[in-house]
């Protein structure tokens, strides 16, 4: 017989929701002590539910759970922070959802990662306080580092040799920058600018607030977004759903296409 308590308290950020049956929902929670886990909230979609709203995605809540046969069951939930300003701004909202998806995809169930949790809370707070979307780049870099996929920026990812101060090869497959010597011996990847390298090195040692204070030119921001997006795709071996969405928001919707047999795509 197990002697574990029948219920427990934890705080956490709600990463996502899936509806179950008529009125229940399953929430994915990221907790500093429990790690990521799924739990059921019974009747939470009924208007009179006491937990409704305290378990919305992107909400940081204090929760009480009872151990269940398969999934644990929420018995109480109370909001710690709802990040209202994030919810009122489409771009920040989309970035926050994207970062939650990264946490979801980069973590395994029930593995506590308190540093990653602090990073997520820092991000939500920064976005709520009006930080520029650049904080997402900091977040991407730190998620990689925190989950064992740190990008090698100080030395060559292949031979550990020094990196010259010039546009440098970035190899996702090798896990970072590749020196001129290794590059000439057949390293492949994309060239990235000295500015992008400096920005990433800065992010590796700065706080989120310090990084958010940088005023990055649009071109540099776009370069960082490409490089980090590539690194993330290579680790996950797929696109993120919400990353696709961030791009969709930037492109105006085309009018409906009426396809006729003679149309050529």
């Amino acid at each position: 017989m197990s002697t574990r308590p029948r219920s427990y308290n934890t705080e956490g950020v709600i990463l996502r929701r899936r509806n179950l049956g008529e009125a229940d929902s399953i929430f994915t929670v990221f907790s500093p002590t429990e790690g990521k886990f799924d739990a059921i909230a019974r009747a939470v979609r009924k208007p009179k539910s006491r937990m409704r709203g305290h378990l919305e995605p992107l909400t940081r809540s204090q929760m009480h759970l009872a151990h269940g046969r398969n999934l644990d069951v929420f018995t109480q939930a109370e909001t710690i922070a709802a990040y209202l300003a994030v919810r009122d701004d489409l771009d920040r909202l989309t970035l926050a959802i994207y970062c939650c998806e990264l946490v979801d995809r980069f973590t395994a169930d029930r593995a506590a990662q308190s540093e990653l949790y602090d990073l997520l809370v820092d991000l939500l707070e920064a976005l709520d306080a009006g930080a520029s979307p650049t904080v997402a780049r900091y977040f991407e870099l730190r998620v990689l580092a925190n989950t064992g996929y740190e990008i090698r920026l100080s030395h060559c990812a292949i031979c550990d040799g020094p990196i010259a101060e010039e546009d440098t090869l970035f190899s996702v497959a090798s896990g970072g920058l590749v020196c001129g010597g290794c590059r000439s011996r057949g390293g492949s990847g994309r060239l990235i600018s000295v500015r992008a390298i400096k920005a990433m090195r800065f992010a590796a040692n700065a706080t989120m607030g310090q990084f958010a204070g940088l005023r990055l030119e649009a071109e540099l921001e776009a370069e960082l977004q490409r490089v980090l997006g590539e690194a993330i795709r290579s680790v996950l071996e797929r696109e993120t759903n919400s990353g696709r969405y961030v791009e969709a928001l930037a492109v105006p919707l085309r009018p409906p296409v009426h396809e006729s047999p003679g149309d050529v795509q």
Partner: peptide, 18 residues
């Protein structure tokens, strides 16, 4: 629903614009 990958192309938004 960004996290589940439901984007503008998946719902009837374009028809509204038209």
């Amino acid at each position: 629903n960004p996290i589940d990958g439901v984007g503008p192309e998946d719902i009837h938004v374009r028809e509204l614009v038209v």
